[in-house]
Design a protein around this nucleic acid. Sequence first.
DNA 1: GTCTATAACGGGATAGAC
DNA 2: GTCTATCCCGTTATAGAC
Lengths: 228, 228
Amino acid sequence: MPATTHPMTRKAGRPRIAVPRARLVEIARRIFADNGYHNTTLDQVAEQAGIRRASLLHRFGSKANLYRELLDQVVGDLRNLVRSAFGPQADFLEALDVLGGRVVDYLGGRPGVGRMLLRELVDGGPYLEGAGIQAVQDTLEVTTAFLASGMSDGAFREQDPRQLALTIVGIHLYYFATLPSTGAFIGAEAYTAEGVAVRKAAVLAHVRSVCEARPGEERRTGAVIGRH
Amino acid sequence: MPATTHPMTRKAGRPRIAVPRARLVEIARRIFADNGYHNTTLDQVAEQAGIRRASLLHRFGSKANLYRELLDQVVGDLRNLVRSAFGPQADFLEALDVLGGRVVDYLGGRPGVGRMLLRELVDGGPYLEGAGIQAVQDTLEVTTAFLASGMSDGAFREQDPRQLALTIVGIHLYYFATLPSTGAFIGAEAYTAEGVAVRKAAVLAHVRSVCEARPGEERRTGAVIGRH
DNA sequence: GTCTATAACGGGATAGAC
DNA sequence: GTCTATCCCGTTATAGAC
């Protein structure tokens, strides 16, 4: 008895047109995002794509490889957003708003992507164990450098820039990643235009709040601010 | 051939003293926290406890049951922290600091717990699918009510209290949950007294920033603040 | 490059002795 | 309450035809 059922009766051999690689990655992205790495079977992906599991394995070598390729794309997109927003000549507060808006649009426009990314950061799955950790660290370093510049400039208040960077990333990622379980807690649908707009307004306000210098506040040099 | 190797040659029958249930849960907590639900095998837990996998299954019925019992404890602890901090008579800014400090101490003192909790929120595993979702929602509602009160009081600035609640939870959880992958990004060791103190200072400052009313700012009634 | 078929493995769960 | 022994299922990966 074969390991899986065979829903289609198709002959072996070359197909007229091969399923494009990008399409396979796109299909895999949706399914991985919905179910997580371990709860996703290659049969699910293959079925959606209309090919066999063995064919999928032939193209990508292994399940882990397919997953890596797909996450590499997401991290690359986000890294590009960060890099383009944090040019050396930028107005600091404005750059904060621009990047925040773009990131929220990116995550809000791709249900499940935030989940998948955060899951990977939490679990240290196949992607991070490879080259992915480098891309993530690089993105954090770029962000940290930008924040430190803003502090020197006086636009942002003095504090530990690495702690601040992680807080900001947390504000962005947590919300979209936990929507499946906290979605009912929010009033409206999150992945609609209005839902994304509501979150964007909140994110921009919150990120500004944790960063920007306050006129009336005394200047400190340590990491502890605002504790009296 | 048996499914697993048998490192010990022990006879069947009642042991002199049974392994306490609490100890089994504690062992399971550490391993689940390190490896996640799907990457944890009952053999790992059983081996650490010095019993067989079948014995573990006898006590808890199933792997999912064991996991639920353990996560229920963590969520219960955090919910109690939130409830005790948000009494109706509290000073708002002070309550914010007190709770933030306690939560950071809790997560900082139990490596892996933040990871496990966030993973569950992201994935919607066996715990959340049961009664867990109720406890999480309840905790969020209590927090939201507190924040709304603070806004009415004038201590916090007017904004969408639910968006604010999720931002605050994100600030707390993201950091500790992603330490395995971003730990190298921070200078010091995170789960030391100093490491926890550094994070605590940052969290208190950031949470205050996103909540507190600013003296010089005009009053708005909508959810959008700080966008010009 | 896709197919069929099968090998090999790991892990959750159960039956019954002690 | 713990053990041994077994069952059974899902998943990865490979072999070889077309």
